[in-house]
């Protein structure tokens, strides 16, 4: 039976393997190759020069100056100046902030008695919404002249409309990303909290341990596997931020199509894909992204093997 199963198994796997070879494995290799070819043009299948080159990487890291396509200035130097910096800001602001808030909310939800289910549903709502749609709602709420936020706080700040500064738009972007990132984290933390043995809390109660100490000495350590998991996956997710910028601004910056001040790494990749001539730069940026993601994934594997606990 075993040997008979052998070819049968491959038959069952055939559709999956064929599709994966075409749409996963080949693209992985091909994109890496393109990233080492200068001015690769997929329509002609040609490239400048004769062999592999590191020029694309040097270009995106701004070493050899600007890059012109069809005589117009393109985004070359914007990778370092905007895409990379903005992405790092998003990662190191939104991930810790949303994890901290989600942890507080999850612990709060876990210790209330009344209306728990209703609150749970409310906090999960942002997860099942369309990122583009709600991003557009945020844009309306932060509108300068008649937005809800300026109305509530009695200000007249230009947050994200034409003429807004990079940092105010970045602030709104981070608020939106945190808002959108909360539900999933709350869900994971909540299921982790429900798995903690009640005995620990009863023991702490008998010893009349203060609540803050219960939180830092019992809840956090016993929740550490979930916290570590959420930290790493959110890091990876935040490095790929793109559609939230599109949803809020419809452009890479508040001042129209040519303003790149809120460019992210992925936005940069899609912008460079727009023209065949800059495909190589998109590939190089994608490889950089792959390396970042792999780095965090290996940290995750390492951490989950060590079993974070106490």
């Amino acid at each position: 039976m075993e040997s008979k199963n052998n070819w049968k198994a491959w038959l069952y796997l055939a559709p999956t393997i064929i599709l994966m070879l075409i749409f996963t494995i080949y693209p992985l290799i091909n994109t890496i190759i393109i990233s080492f070819l200068k001015h690769y043009d997929y329509t002609q299948n040609t490239f400048a020069g004769t062999s592999f080159t590191f020029d694309n990487y040097l270009l995106i890291f701004g070493k050899t100056g600007q890059y012109y396509i069809d005589g117009t200035f393109s985004y070359t130097t914007t990778f370092m100046r905007y895409a990379l910096i903005n992405t790092l800001i998003i990662v190191f602001v939104t991930v810790p902030a949303s994890i901290f808030l989600a942890l507080l909310i999850a612990v709060g939800l876990n210790s209330i008695k009344w209306f728990r289910r209703i609150f749970q549903t409310i906090f999960f709502m942002p997860y099942v919404t369309n990122a583009i749609a709600i991003g557009m709602v945020f844009a309306v709420m932060f509108q300068k002249d008649f937005g809800l936020i300026n109305m509530i706080f009695g200000t007249n700040k230009n947050w994200i409309d034409f003429g807004a500064s990079r940092w105010s738009a970045m602030f709104v972007l981070c608020v939106y990303i945190i808002w959108h990132a909360l539900p999933y984290k709350i869900l994971i933390f909540l299921s982790g909290l429900q798995g903690i043995d009640k005995q620990y809390y009863q023991a702490a109660k008998i010893d009349s341990t203060p609540k803050v100490k219960v939180f830092t000495r019992i809840t956090i350590p016993l929740l550490s596997p979930q916290i570590a998991y959420v930290f790493i996956t959110s890091f990876i997710g935040a490095f790929k931020e793109y559609s939230s910028v599109v949803a809020l601004l419809n452009n890479p910056g508040p001042n129209g199509k040519l303003d790149n001040s809120l460019l992210t790494i992925v936005y940069y990749i899609y912008n460079m894909m727009d023209k065949p001539a800059s495909m190589s730069l998109a590939a190089a940026a994608a490889v950089v992204l792959l390396l970042i993601v792999l780095f965090f994934t290996f940290i995750q594997l390492y951490v989950s093997n060590k079993k974070v606990h106490y």
Partner: peptide, 21 residues
């Protein structure tokens, strides 16, 4: 199979776009 989950989609989009084109 599991390892391919690590690959960011953006990495694949470039070549997949060329393929479908």
């Amino acid at each position: 199979f599991l390892a391919t989950m690590m690959i960011p989609g953006e990495m694949l989009v470039i070549t997949n776009y060329i393929t479908v084109a």
